[in-house]
C-alpha cells in the first residue's frame, strides 16, 4: 500500500493560483473525504495525484506529491505506471465507445493481459464487485453507452478497479446518480477501503459523515483544516470550517 504525502502543492492557471501550498498526508487504507465549496480546487487537487493536470492548458504545478517517497510530479516520473496505480472515478461517467466487456477489459489489455479466459474472469469479477454483473451478464457485448447513467458509473468503477490500482481517486462519484445507485456505490466504498486508499471528493456533507475516516477541508484554494472525521466534524478549529459545516458558506 503506497503512502501519499503532499508537500507545498501549488497550482496556478494562467498565472493566478488555484491551490496554494497544500501540505498534508493521506492516511492509508481509509476513506479521505475532500470537502469544500464549488470552485475551491478539489478536482484540481485530484488531477495532480495522477498527473491528469498535465493535460490542462496553462496549468502550472509546483511542490511535491510523494508516493512512497518518490515525487510523482518530477518531470521524469513514470506517468503510465503512476496512473495504473491511481484509479480514477470521475464526476460524470465516461464509458469508452466499445462494449461493456471491452470497457472493463480495456485496462487489463493495456497492461498486458491477453488471455481470453483470464479476461473473462477479470470482467466477471469486477462487474460483480461493482454490483453490475446481475444487470449486464446477458448483454456483455452491447455498447456501454446504452447503459443508464447509474449503471455507467458502476461500469466505470469496475473498469477502474480492473486495472488493479492501489489508490482510488473519486471525484463526486455520486453527483449524477439517483439515491439507489448512489447507495450502491457508497456500500462498495466501505468494502473497498479494506484494500484501497480512497480519496473521495464530495459536495455532500452527509456523505462525508457517512463514509469518511478523515476529512480535508479546502476553501478558495487553501487547505484550511484536515483531521479525523470525528474531530473535524464535531470540533472544527477554524472559523471557516465551522461556517461551512453549519452551512453559512457553501
Amino acid at each position: 500500500m503506497p503512502h501519499i504525502s503532499v508537500r507545498d502543492l501549488t497550482v496556478a492557471y494562467d498565472g493566478h493560483a488555484i491551490l496554494s501550498d497544500v501540505t498534508m498526508d493521506i492516511p492509508d487504507r481509509q476513506i479521505t473525504a475532500i470537502v469544500g465549496p464549488s470552485g475551491c480546487g478539489k478536482t484540481t487537487f485530484l488531477r495532480c495525484m495522477n498527473r491528469l493536470i498535465d493535460m490542462t492548458d496553462g496549468a502550472r504545478v509546483r511542490g511535491e506529491v510523494l508516493i512512497d517517497g518518490a515525487n510523482i510530479l518530477a518531470p521524469d516520473a513514470d506517468v503510465i505506471s503512476l496512473r495504473k496505480k491511481m484509479g480514477l472515478l470521475s464526476q460524470k461517467p465516461q464509458p469508452l465507445p466499445m462494449s461493456i466487456y471491452d470497457n472493463v477489459a480495456y485496462g487489463p489489455r493495456l497492461h498486458g493481459t491477453r488471455n481470453k479466459r483470464q479476461l473473462d474472469a477479470i470482467v466477471e469479477r469486477y462487474l460483480k464487485l461493482s454490483s453490475l454483473w446481475g444487470e449486464v451478464r446477458e448483454r456483455l457485448h452491447a455498447p456501454a453507452a446504452r447503459l443508464s447513467v447509474g449503471q455507467q458509473q458502476r461500469l466505470c468503477l469496475a473498469r477502474g478497479l480492473a486495472v488493479e490500482p492501489e489508490v482510488l481517486l473519486c471525484d463526486e462519484p455520486c453527483a449524477s446518480l439517483d439515491p439507489t445507485s448512489a447507495q450502491h456505490i457508497e456500500k462498495r466504498f466501505v468494502e473497498l477501503k479494506q484494500d484501497y486508499t480512497i480519496v473521495l471528493v464530495t459536495h455532500i456533507l452527509r456523505q462525508a459523515r457517512r463514509l469518511a475516516d478523515y476529512i480535508v477541508f479546502f476553501y478558495m484554494g487553501e487547505l484550511v483544516e484536515h483531521g479525523p472525521a470525528e474531530q473535524l466534524l464535531n470540533d472544527p478549529r477554524d472559523e471557516r470550517t465551522k461556517a461551512y459545516l453549519s452551512g453559512t458558506i457553501s
Binding site: M55, S81, K84, L88, S90, G107, G160, V163
Partner: peptide, 15 residues
C-alpha cells in the same frame, strides 16, 4: 472527440 473520453483512457494508464 470529447477530452473527458481521452482522459478516461489516460487515467487508466493508456499512452
Amino acid at each position: 472527440v470529447p477530452q473527458a473520453l481521452k482522459e478516461a483512457s489516460y487515467a487508466m494508464g493508456g499512452t
